[in-house]
């Protein structure tokens, strides 16, 4: 049963990462499209590439769990880890942006949190849910490594 949850989690989150990654790259090529403001797409191709990679790890995990060929859960764990890692990278970048604007910003150029939000940041929140669900199991394994 545990595996079924992981499978669904990996499949859904993986699909989200892949779709948003494709959007990010598309936006670079064809420019921002109307109607997607809520997704906070930045049109950064590298950002899109990272989204695709994380998505691929999740999808691979879900696929392996589905086919029951073993090691599927491992891919889900690493996917969660990558998700959180890149969420943190973006979070640090956001903080740095805020600090810079507050202390050294030129007059009138207000800093808006919405400028710094991107899919890597908010998808990490979902990744974090997975971490709280299975993180103990995973970290125990790592420390014993």
């Amino acid at each position: 049963m545990q595996d079924m949850t992981k499978l669904l989690f990996g499949a859904v989150l993986g699909a989200l990462y892949v779709v948003l990654g494709i959007f990010q790259i598309l936006w670079t090529v064809i420019g921002p499209q109307p109607g997607f403001d809520a997704l906070f797409l930045t049109g950064d191709p590298f950002n899109g590439f990272v989204l695709l990679v994380i998505g691929a790890v999740f999808v691979t995990g879900a696929w392996k769990l589905f086919r029951d060929i073993g090691e599927g859960a491992v891919f889900i764990y690493i996917g969660i880890l990558l998700s959180i890692l890149f969420g943190m990278v973006e979070f640090f970048a956001l903080c740095a942006g805020a600090i810079e604007t507050i202390f050294f910003g030129e007059e009138g150029s207000g800093w808006a949190i919405t400028d710094s939000i991107n899919p890597l940041l908010y998808l990490a929140a979902i990744g974090a849910v997975g971490f709280f669900a299975w993180g103990r199991e995973f970290l125990r394994g790592l420390r014993a490594a």
Partner: peptide, 12 residues
Amino acid sequence: LGIPIFLALMWG
């Protein structure tokens, strides 16, 4: 996935 993961980490 090895090389893409590596490249993603480098971007980070």
